[in-house]
Nucleic acid binder design. Sequence first.
DNA 1: AAAGTATTTAGAAATATTTCTAAATAGATA
DNA 2: TATCTATTTAGAAATATTTCTAAATACTTT
Lengths: 90, 90
Amino acid sequence: MSFGQTFKALSDPVRREILTLLRSGRMSAGEIGSHFDMTGATISYHLSILKKADLVHESKYKNYIYYELNTSVVEEVMAWLSHLKGGNES
Amino acid sequence: MSFGQTFKALSDPVRREILTLLRSGRMSAGEIGSHFDMTGATISYHLSILKKADLVHESKYKNYIYYELNTSVVEEVMAWLSHLKGGNES
DNA sequence: AAAGTATTTAGAAATATTTCTAAATAGATA
DNA sequence: TATCTATTTAGAAATATTTCTAAATACTTT
């Protein structure tokens, strides 16, 4: 995991909204796309960025690809931020 | 404050390193720049991004401009991330 | 006031990001 | 098997980001 990749993934409003949608559970690519006024190809691009940043995991079922939040990376980012404001250890 | 701006600011490695430097206290622009193999103009550009994201504050003394971390925005970002992984309230 | 030091601003070049359309892939159903 | 549905990939256009050099600003010291 690289923080650069993770923060870059988090820097786009569409991707943050996708993550927010996934708070309530796994969702297929198409279902995610239906919340946005964009082509499926664009949504797929954003999902690939989130996947590379390991912020989501995918699983296949029938015709669909389901995405779900990976909270462990979210926690790593929080730990980095916590260290930042944490004071002057090490 | 906009999360987009904040995450974008955090997505660059130079800017994350500047913030890490500022963990140990305020520092002048030149002192910050001396830690990088880049022109002062480039460092100034990065500082302006951090400033716009409200991640740092500046104060002037004599010839120098000092920068320091603004931890309150760091906390707002952490709160957003916490909400993300937090489960399904609201 | 003149010269020096610290920092920013302007403008340009190289690179990266975001979006689209069109085509490709993969799996499901008729 | 042929076709339909869901999703991704490729390629291109528009926009944004990062870096540099050169010049401008601002404050200090001589």
